[in-house]
Amino acid sequence: MIASIAGEDLELCVERAVYWPRRRMLLIADPHFGKAASFRALGVYVPHGTTTSALERINTLIIQKQPEHLVFLGDFLHAREGRNVETFTDLASWRASHAAVTMQIVRGNHDKRTGDPPAYVGIDFVDGPIIEPPFVLMHHPIASEQGYVLAGHIHPCATLVGPAHQRVRLPCFAFGTQVGILPAFGEFTGCAEVAKASDTHIWVVADDHILRVDIPR
């Protein structure tokens, strides 16, 4: 699904990521790596597999789109308790397998408390924003004078209603006039109902489809 945003074509992907073909750049928001591990460290049982599965989804995207750059829009790691060697080793070997792709993390609120991943993981991090005209890549969806903001943080989702009292809630992309918000990439994350303004365009992720939904007048 191609969306035209700030004069650029952006590809909205069902894996809950955005690909920008002109700059060959893949954007991913809020993966929250190590969230399951931080629960386990605090004595709450969660099975393994969420990190590996998230990395596999990124692999799929990289194989399909062949990006040159990958930018994480914040909340790369979930919590300090989730910092463990196993997660970092997985991340490092995954990173090494895509040596040709540059990777950057814009720090999010979770990252600031959790700390950056160790250097051997091999991903650069910045406080942001990253300016990639016409876009400003950052974590918090706050309008910027420097360009159109692409951000995460909110974990947006939208509720749809239909005839005969049908109702469904789905993760979504929400593009306003100055700010666009990506859905959270991490699976083990909640979501928040997105604000619906008449100048916002919403695309929902419905299993293996991206569908544009209109705001009723």
Binding site: T159, A192, K196, V204, D208, I215
Partner: peptide, 28 residues
């Protein structure tokens, strides 16, 4: 007296083509 149970065998994408955004307050 309507409870909230739902069952569907339609493809999600087919189902939501008939739908529109709910404009109620958040977390409703």
């Amino acid at each position: 007296d309507r409870t909230r149970n739902r069952v569907s065998s339609e493809k999600l994408a087919d189902r939501i083509k008939r739908m529109q955004l709910a404009l109620e307050k958040a977390a409703g």
